[in-house]
Design a protein around this nucleic acid. Structure first.
Lengths: 210, 210
DNA sequence: TCAAAAGTGTTCCAGATACACCCATGT
DNA sequence: ACATGGGTGTATCTGGAACACTTTTGA
């Protein structure tokens, strides 16, 4: 699980590591603004973003009063390698090894991680991240990355399949192993109904919501 | 379950029903601002508020560009009757029978209700709303109000008590019935630990998260 | 033939649900 | 005595958790 950061392009703290960010324009909604700024600074486009929280402490930027309405997105790095532009030197860091960020950006990242874990424990949002065809070991690796926890593959597959969201394919992925793992695809019709539903995708004794 | 609204005190839409709201001052955090405005317009003070969402559509206020960072709070009306001041004619409406609100304030209320139901299904947040001593029928009535759903009292009491958050008192409340219902108090020591924990306070077949 | 990853089944337990009767007491 | 609301117990079922062996096949 990685975090995309950029070298800040203006003062103060120019050149230091920062979350992607910029200024809202007069006729722009916050969502549109977030999408525009993301594209300008990283090249990424067509990414589904969610509003996280507004940060507004009067002293959070020591130079002037700034309010930040933050958004986060989850993407599969591999599906966006083409798009990533170099203009602001965006860089992926392992979340655990990320550099110190300016201002309150560390708090933002922590809050986003917490929200992602919360959401993903209850809703099948992580399924969307994978390529069209993916294997169960692949999906499990994703959950392991998000929760930093090893899931039991027997229980994992039973739980995931019981949601009836996946359709088993006939082909196997032979990349990861000699035996090969069956591909699955999302059942889009089921998916929309169940996205909001109330499933525990994470074993309960592990209280990830703290 | 009721909603507190005020008569808007300035143009545009002056005098119409509106959620409590005002303008952020230069040296004020959004939280402080929300608390100040709430106090000015309703007299309510010391109320725990939570950030909901920032609303920023460029056309949401037809006169000028306004961004709103919204907060919500849950209180027990009875515990705050003294505080409620009349300056802005604040008024409690049954949530289901609330009047039409200005701008996108209806959306705000819907979003807050959704978030409250979501939170309360997983965390014992509603317990905080009651007076220091309360009865199980009282608590159950609160859940009924929030979810607009009749809970089975046998299952309800079992579930609530199994969280080990409540301490049974020796006295009974004789207001509501002839037999009287035992008072309970929150176990504050347990409470902090379990507030974040991952309980299902609402029967699962009822999918309140939609 | 062996190493490496995939796939699968069973038992046990906790928690959820549905459901009905007795208790205490003020009138 | 009776009406009103409070309190409790049981059977059943579903879903979660723990756990180990067999299968496939490329090297």
């Amino acid at each position: 699980m990685k975090l995309l950061v950029i070298h800040r392009g203006f003062e103060p703290e120019m050149g230091k590591w920062s979350v992607v960010g910029g200024f809202l324009q007069a006729d722009e909604s916050p969502e549109d603004s977030a999408a525009r700024i993301l594209k300008q600074q990283t090249g990424l486009e067509g990414v589904y973003m969610q509003q996280l929280k507004a940060f507004g402490d009067p002293k959070r930027d020591p130079m002037e009063r700034v309010l930040s309405i933050t958004y986060f997105a989850l993407i599969d790095i591999d599906q966006y390698t083409e798009q990533l532009s170099e203009e602001y030197n965006p860089e992926w860091f392992l979340l655990k090894e990320r550099p110190e960020l300016i201002f309150d950006h560390n708090k933002m990242v922590e809050a986003a991680l917490k929200k992602i874990r919360y959401m993903a424990a209850l809703h099948p949002v992580l399924f969307e991240l994978l390529p069209e065809k993916f294997t169960l070991p692949h999906l499990q690796a994703l959950y392991t990355a998000v929760y930093d926890f090893e899931f039991d593959k027997r229980n994992f597959s039973r739980k995931v399949l019981s949601a009836n969201l996946l359709i088993k394919q006939k082909e196997k992925d032979k990349e990861g192993s000699k035996k090969g793992a069956y591909y699955y695809m999302l059942d889009k019709s089921q998916y929309k109904d169940k996205l909001q539903s109330f499933l525990n995708f994470v074993p309960s004794p592990n209280n990830f919501l703290l």
